[in-house]
Nucleic acid binder design. Structure first.
Lengths: 226, 226
DNA sequence: CCACCCGGTATTGTATACAATGTGCAACGG
DNA sequence: CCGTTGCACATTGTATACAATACCGGGTGG
């Protein structure tokens, strides 16, 4: 945990700041699908050179936020309803796998720790506090059940909304709490299937909620049928 | 298809060449888990500056090949048996989802095209030819059923073995052929569950085969129980 | 009138140079 | 003798400068 704290305290590099900046622009709807990211422009606006901008763009490309084509530039990716659904379906699959393993391998102490964290989630008064506890829950699950590689896969496909998720998605907190509660119940019953289903539905519901929030804010054009 | 061809012909940038070089080093066992990648050293060896090396490292970090820590350097990630299993489990989940959708939405023409491709796979005499057809199959499936975002997720978590997969994994071709055949059968029967299962098992078997190949070549230390 | 070619210009890709950070060792004090 | 502090070095992070490539307009020939 101290390592986590240190990492958090370490001020992020220019590249990471730039990446965060662009993510926020996309989330806010100031950059929309197909828009081009000019390296010079971004560098000037943020007062850095093009190197960190390029590195941020590479990161965002790998994360799926933009498409980076050689010698042509970076264009913000599609954020249609289908994309968001796919994104959360995918996260649901991965977290479902993690949940399955947790149900199979968690010790009594692990379960006790999860229960404590769930209580902390429910007790949180501020959304920031809630988000922090939530991260600890996620971290715990990954530590219990995921290899570094699987963890990396989840980090590579991060929540569409990073910071301020629970501010942005009003029903997000409730969905998360009931999802984790269902997971805990399933783990206690040692039911891998139920644990899998619990997190899959949780992510599915989060996806719907995010989609609703984006639609409301105008980032996503309208409901699109698959 | 012409777009794909063009992309393929476009000679890759220095960054991409460096990334490929490092991937090969890791696959070949010349770089093992925990080894540090010094930017200067790699740049000198390949006769490029550190900029493309850095960009390659960022890519590899996002892909899970290395862990890149700020101001500390990049270290090659863990490639224990568990990691490889996780990697293929994950790909199995994603491809299973794709298969499910293909079974639900494919037209008669799509099915016919898949059948033709399967015949071409079986008819291929050279492994290179087989690999090319295989890529067309994958591309077709993704085009039928996956949003750009899901496709990106699959490209971000590429097969552990890129080029020369079928040379490296002796049983790979047979696994792939029977897997695609099973998929085709499931799609014809319009069974999403069977399609899902077909690709999940295919990837599971590929994972086992890759693990065996790596173990044989000494890249993976030994069988590790979870 | 349309298709093609060909420079000029804008933008990206990479090399070089410098700044900032982390690491290891040695000297010092307890 | 052990822990700590501070400096020198190695390495990474970023800025600047230059090279390579793609886009866009006019011009030319058919």
């Amino acid at each position: 945990m101290s390592a986590t704290t240190q990492r958090r305290l370490k001020r992020e590099s220019s590249s990471e700041q730039v990446a965060g900046h662009i993510r926020r622009l996309i989330m806010a709807g100031e950059l929309i699908t197909g828009d081009r990211l000019r390296q010079d422009e971004i560098a000037d606006q943020l007062g850095v050179s093009r190197i960190p901008v390029r590195e941020a763009i590479i990161t965002l490309d790998r994360e799926g936020w933009v498409n980076f084509e050689s010698h042509r530039g970076a264009f913000v990716a599609s954020f249609a309803a289908d994309d968001i659904r796919d994104h959360y379906d995918l996260r649901g699959l991965i977290f479902g796998l993690v949940a399955r393993r947790v149900a199979e391998t968690a010790t009594a102490d692990d379960i006790k720790a999860l229960a404590l964290l769930l209580r902390a989630m429910r007790a949180a008064t501020e959304l920031d506090e809630f988000a922090a506890v939530n991260e600890r829950v996620i971290g715990r699950l990954l530590k219990l059940a995921a290899s570094p590689r699987l963890t990396a896969a989840l980090l590579v496909t991060p929540a569409v909304v990073h910071e301020g998720f629970f501010e942005f998605v009003p029903t997000g907190r409730a969905i998360q709490e009931t999802g984790i509660a269902a997971l805990l119940k399933a783990v206690r019953a040692r039911s891998a299937d139920a644990a899998d289903a619990a997190l899959r539905t949780m992510l599915r519901r989060q996806g719907d909620a995010v989609l609703a929030a984006f639609t409301a804010s105008g980032v996503v054009a309208a409901a699109g049928t698959r």
